[in-house]
Design a protein around this nucleic acid. Structure first.
Lengths: 202, 202
DNA sequence: CGGAAGTAAGTGATTAATCACTTACTTTTC
DNA sequence: GAAAAGTAAGTGATTAATCACTTACTTCCG
């Protein structure tokens, strides 16, 4: 990590920059990440960053795109392998938890982007990601209802929001305890409760 | 509000400052609130702020104390009037939702304080508030179990985390829609799901 | 050699905090 | 009771630090 090749192709630098931002977000408030800090971590001068990104906002946009692509891809793969809608929801949950445990800065970045006052590119990406996430959840919940696994009385929109909230609650707990690993151990219990909330009474 | 008396007693100014910060946090990223913006909203010079607070960090500490006092007081009152543990949880939920609907900046401030890297006074207050909140929830959930309203199989710590997560999910939805009022209309559905998650199967 | 990648050294803008000083009100003293 | 003394509250100007971003130049490599 410390001795980066002096000259790297543009696309590799862009990717490395995004990964550096994700790593830094795990350690500090994403809003406080400076271009100087990114450059220092990459063993580059601050000015070099602007060879590959026109503005800091463009960096945030690239980071949010990175998150959206990776998270949705992993989640779709997990859901596709599941035997039933409810099993797919559980697999999505586990995959999402694994993702945020590996990248603890991601939920902070998401929340931070969402609460920006200005309409930045990064904020739009965060919205799009959450919207797509919600679509997938709603489809699965509806499928579970016709399947009989999920109670017909359950409000699909509310259940989708609770899915995200359940994860957010775990993130908050890990922020409180200061231990990012705690999210993994607490996850099964959290999903067990979520399943109780939506599952049909057998 | 626009024509403030030229000289105000210290304690009133401190209180007015805190309320101004809470109001500003509803409109913009709490981290981006400047002392100049606070002063402008109060029809004061930026320097005047520092007659009443030694530092900006001290302002955040006072704000978090304000939140902790008000929120816990309202929640305790609501829970005390309830007929049963589960009813108390529902009353707490409704009261909390009413609080964040009235002060949309509060959850943003909380999350923002929690994810600070440095150990600030404001961060400590946020932690304390959440810890006290969790205590109350755990007590109620345990009481509900002995009462028979809440399933014995439910993990009290996980259920307490889910309670907070459920609210956080609603906050996230309102951030997505950009409509702070949506949190009120979506709240009953969210609690209905939470009740399903923890209630004993009758 | 030539273009892509990198740097050192700037820029203007913004920020929290400080400074010397004024204003408005209260308390003391003869 | 009113002038003098004291004080809390407020101001405009300024400061040092930090930030994203730019410019002019150098180094690397096919």
């Amino acid at each position: 990590m410390q001795t980066t090749a002096r000259h790297l192709p543009a696309e590799e630098r862009r990717a490395a920059t995004v990964e550096t931002v994700v790593a830094l977000a795990a350690e500090q408030n994403p809003g406080d990440i400076t271009t100087a800090a990114i450059a220092e971590r990459m063993n580059l001068s601050q000015a070099a960053i602007f060879r590959h990104f026109p503005s800091k906002d463009a960096i945030w946009q690239a980071v949010m795109e990175w998150v959206a692509e990776r998270l949705l891809a992993r989640i779709d793969r997990a859901a596709a392998d599941a035997a039933s809608p409810l099993a797919a929801l559980e697999a999505m949950f586990a995959t999402h938890i694994e993702f945020v445990a590996a990248h603890p800065g991601v939920p902070r970045m998401m929340f931070g982007e969402l609460q920006r006052a200005e309409d930045t590119a990064g904020k739009r990406m965060a919205r799009t990601l959450l919207a797509r996430y919600g679509e997938r959840l709603t489809l699965l919940i509806d499928a579970g209802k016709t399947n009989g696994e999920i109670a017909a009385a359950v409000d699909a929109a509310a259940a989708a929001a609770l899915f995200v909230g359940t994860i957010q609650g775990l993130v908050m707990q890990s922020l409180l305890s200061g231990d990012a690993r705690s999210i993994r151990t607490a996850a099964p219990g959290a999903f067990a409760l979520y399943r109780r909330a939506i599952a049909a009474t057998s």
